[in-house]
């Protein structure tokens, strides 16, 4: 082999290695800064204290309110996106005429391409006033509005991946079911959804991870009030919104307040990391099943 060929291969290889360095970089940065943080704050306090007030004079470092805020908005989003996304996936793959599908599938995917700051504006200026008509006691910043809009954003994620999973179910199973006199609805829910369940689960996990990591919508519409509550009408703060809040303020580099974003970031990264890996391994397993 020529030397130039070797050099080219080396160049391509080092590009690929950058992705590994990125992961190492993320883990190293989060861990090293968090370690310094945990010298001042015990991990026990971090994980069990129910108050998060690092920017106040009376400081408390309990991550639970941020986690609960994150989970609350995420659960609302998934509660919207899962049924809608699944219905869309079934409709598009089993019912819709080809033309309808060819037109509306790309349009749906635009929903995922809209910048999230735009969704935040939508939540704050359209959805929250609308919700105020129904729930007069709702806060101006609230988990419900942000969660609902985030749900719309992740619909295409659930619908696209679920549709792929339904599509991968062998045609012979559809024929068997129709051949028994089942309707399309019965075939979809009694045969296809169970057979495609792993792919559908993957889509939901990925949507879940996406919602957990979503930042601008919650920073704009959910508020910046660490709040250990399950009340969707109240203002909350998510991990991501907290990181943005600190970044926008005048926090001195190297201070303990500054390091809180690394500890919060580490928590966020751990959550999405677990979810992404679970989905990756489910997908690997299920690909093998159909090949």
């Amino acid at each position: 082999m020529k030397i130039s060929e070797k050099i080219i291969e080396g160049g391509l290889f080092s590009s690929a290695v950058i992705t590994i360095l990125t992961t190492i970089g993320i883990i190293w940065v989060l861990l090293s800064q968090s370690l310094v943080f945990f010298k001042d704050v015990s991990i026990w306090e971090f994980l069990t204290s129910t108050e998060w007030t690092p920017l106040f004079t009376k400081k408390s470092y309990g991550i639970l309110p941020l986690i609960s805020g994150t989970m609350l908005t995420t659960l609302i989003a998934v509660a919207i996106a899962l049924p809608l996304g699944l219905c869309i996936a079934i409709y598009l793959s089993e019912y819709a005429p080809r033309k309808f599908r060819d037109i509306f599938k790309p349009m749906l995917e635009v929903l995922a391409a809209v910048p999230t700051v735009v969704y935040g504006f939508f939540a704050l200026t359209v959805v929250t006033p609308f919700l105020k008509n129904i729930f007069p006691e709702i806060d101006t910043f609230n988990a419900l509005s942000a969660g609902l809009v985030m749900g719309v954003m992740i619909i295409p994620m659930v619908s696209s991946l679920s549709e792929d999973a339904l599509f991968a179910v062998p045609k012979s199973l559809r024929e068997a079911s129709y051949g028994m006199g089942a309707t399309r609805l019965q075939t979809s829910f009694k045969v296809l959804v169970p057979a495609a369940s792993s792919g559908i689960i993957v889509s939901v996990i990925l949507a879940f991870a996406r919602a957990i990591g979503e930042t601008m919508i919650v920073a704009i519409a959910a508020g910046q009030m660490p709040n250990l509550t399950a009340n969707p009408l109240a203002a909350v703060e998510t991990i991501t919104a907290y990181i943005v809040q600190v970044s926008l303020g005048d926090v001195a580099h190297g201070s303990i307040e500054y390091r809180t974003i690394f500890a919060a970031g580490l928590t966020l990264f751990a959550m999405t990391f677990v979810l992404n890996n679970v989905s990756f391994f489910i997908r690997k397993k299920y690909q093998e099943k159909y090949d």
Binding site: I26, L30, T240, I243, G265, N276
Partner: peptide, 11 residues
């Protein structure tokens, strides 16, 4: 691909 964008900000 699944790492939240805000984490890239921290990096």
């Amino acid at each position: 691909a699944g790492v939240p964008s805000v984490i890239y900000g921290i990096l």
